[in-house]
Simulated scan of single mutants.
Amino acid sequence: MQLQVTNETARLKAVILGIANSNGPVPSIEEAYDPKSAEFIKKGEYPKEEDMIQEMESVAAVFRKYNVDVFRPKIIENYNQIFTRDIGFVIEDKFMRANILPDREQEIEAIHYVINQMNPENVIVLPEQCHIEGGDIMPHGEYIFIGTYRGEDYSTYITARTNLAAVEAIQQLFPHKKVKSFNLRKSNTNAKANALHLDCCFQPVGKDKAIIHRNGFLEEAEYQWLVDFFGKENIFEIDAQEMYDMTSNIFSISEDVVVSDRHFTRLNTWLRSHGITVEEVSYREIAKQEGLLRCSTLPLIRA
């Protein structure tokens, strides 16, 4: 398998899509990895497995429509394997295995059959001290955008997933790229004030556009850098409720086609007004776990 990913919007050829089968029992509050999951556990509204399977199969159907090769994790009994973006990512021709929460180590085992098809020299595991997850990593041409948290209290946030050691390691691995990191707002308890990953508050879309939530960024200057980089006229600003709903977490099949939640009516109208085809699905149940379309996909080849 010849890996190739240099941005978020080139034509998708191959992807690993998560799987919701045998997702396991409803977690306890203590087992929740993020404030949104905890919220729905408390309310007794944690998503049902059959509903999540249906949502994910609707995305698989869209991929088939566009002749995308779709890999799925092997099923581990009673285990959450929905969010493949967390466990790895591709930059250029390198597959980077994420250093994820220890409780989720088994997830990478379920995609070993895919990794085994790659050139082993291009499969990279960062040192243990480098915390990193794919939702924080966005290749963008000559840039690599990375979400992080720079606070000295990093270790107190279960929602802080990518640290500065990982940012530095990525820069060393890709010295020809401009690595730009963004300090994200974190909360263990308030989902409306928590940017779990960079793709929870920002994502490039189309040829030159981006979706962004200002308050997801702790430093105004870094938010403004992105606005200036893309141009204010090319930015779709989302509010706190839209970030909570995961509106920035759509997924591009190409510059001209995206998969989006049908509930994002304001965003979908804007995308269509710029000539982008929107393939609508419902992902409301999966969204209860503070992840959406980008989170549940791991692109392998974009050409």
Score class of each variant (00 low, 15 high):
Met1Leu: 13
Asn7Lys: 03
Asn7Ala: 00
Glu8Asn: 02
Arg11Gly: 13
Ala20Lys: 05
Ala20Leu: 10
Asn21Val: 13
Ser22Glu: 15
Ser22Cys: 11
Gly24Thr: 06
Pro25Tyr: 07
Val26Asn: 07
Pro27Val: 03
Ile29Glu: 03
Asp34Leu: 03
Pro35Phe: 05
Ser37Asn: 11
Glu39Gly: 12
Ile41Pro: 04
Ile41Met: 04
Pro47Leu: 03
Pro47Ser: 04
Met52Arg: 02
Ser58Ala: 07
Val59Phe: 00
Ala61Ile: 06
Phe63Tyr: 09
Val68Ile: 06
Asp69Phe: 11
Asp69Gln: 14
Asp69Cys: 13
Phe71His: 04
Phe71Ala: 01
Ile75Asp: 01
Ile76Pro: 05
Glu77Thr: 12
Asn78Trp: 03
Tyr79Gly: 12
Tyr79Trp: 14
Gln81Ile: 12
Ile82Tyr: 13
Phe83Thr: 00
Thr84Ala: 05
Arg85Asn: 07
Phe89Ile: 08
Val90Leu: 02
Ile91Pro: 01
Glu92Asp: 15
Asp93Ser: 05
Arg104Tyr: 09
Arg104Phe: 13
Glu105Lys: 13
Glu107Asp: 10
Ile108Leu: 11
Ala110Arg: 06
Ile111Thr: 10
His112Asp: 14
Val114Asn: 07
Ile115Asn: 02
Asn116Ser: 14
Asn119Ser: 11
Asn119His: 09
Glu121Val: 07
Gln129Glu: 15
His131Leu: 12
His131Gln: 11
Ile132Leu: 11
Glu133Tyr: 10
Gly135Arg: 02
Asp136Lys: 01
Ile137Ser: 07
Pro139His: 03
Glu142Ala: 08
Glu142Val: 14
Phe145Ala: 01
Tyr149Ala: 01
Gly151Phe: 05
Tyr154Met: 01
Thr162Gln: 00
Asn163His: 02
Leu164Thr: 08
Ala165Leu: 12
Ala165Lys: 09
Val167Gln: 03
Ala169Phe: 06
Ile170Trp: 10
Gln171Lys: 07
Phe174Tyr: 12
Phe174His: 08
Phe174Trp: 09
Pro175Phe: 12
His176Arg: 13
Phe182Thr: 13
Arg185His: 15
Ser187Met: 05
Ser187Leu: 05
Thr189Asn: 13
Asn190Lys: 10
Lys192Arg: 14
Ala195Glu: 08
Ala195Ser: 13
Leu196Cys: 03
His197Tyr: 04
His197Gln: 08
Phe202Lys: 02
Pro204Asp: 02
Pro204Gly: 04
Arg214Lys: 15
Asn215Trp: 08
Phe217Ile: 07
Phe229Gly: 01
Gly231Tyr: 08
Lys232Gln: 12
Asn234Lys: 07
Asn234Gly: 12
Ile235Trp: 06
Ile235Lys: 02
Asp239Tyr: 09
Asp239His: 08
Met246Ile: 05
Thr247Pro: 06
Thr247Asn: 07
Thr247Val: 14
Asn249His: 04
Ile253Phe: 00
Ile253Pro: 00
Glu255Asn: 10
Glu255Pro: 11
Asp256Val: 04
Val257Arg: 04
Val258Cys: 01
Val258Met: 00
Val259His: 01
Val259Trp: 01
Val259Pro: 00
His263Trp: 12
Thr265Pro: 09
Leu267Ile: 13
Leu267Trp: 11
Leu267Asn: 10
Leu271Lys: 10
Ser273Arg: 09
His274Leu: 06
Ile276Phe: 03
Thr277Lys: 14
Glu280Ala: 00
Glu280Gln: 01
Val281Asn: 07
Val281Met: 10
Ala287Gly: 01
Lys288Asp: 14
Gln289Asp: 09
Gln289Trp: 06
Glu290Gln: 15
Arg294Tyr: 11
Arg294Trp: 07
Ala303Glu: 12
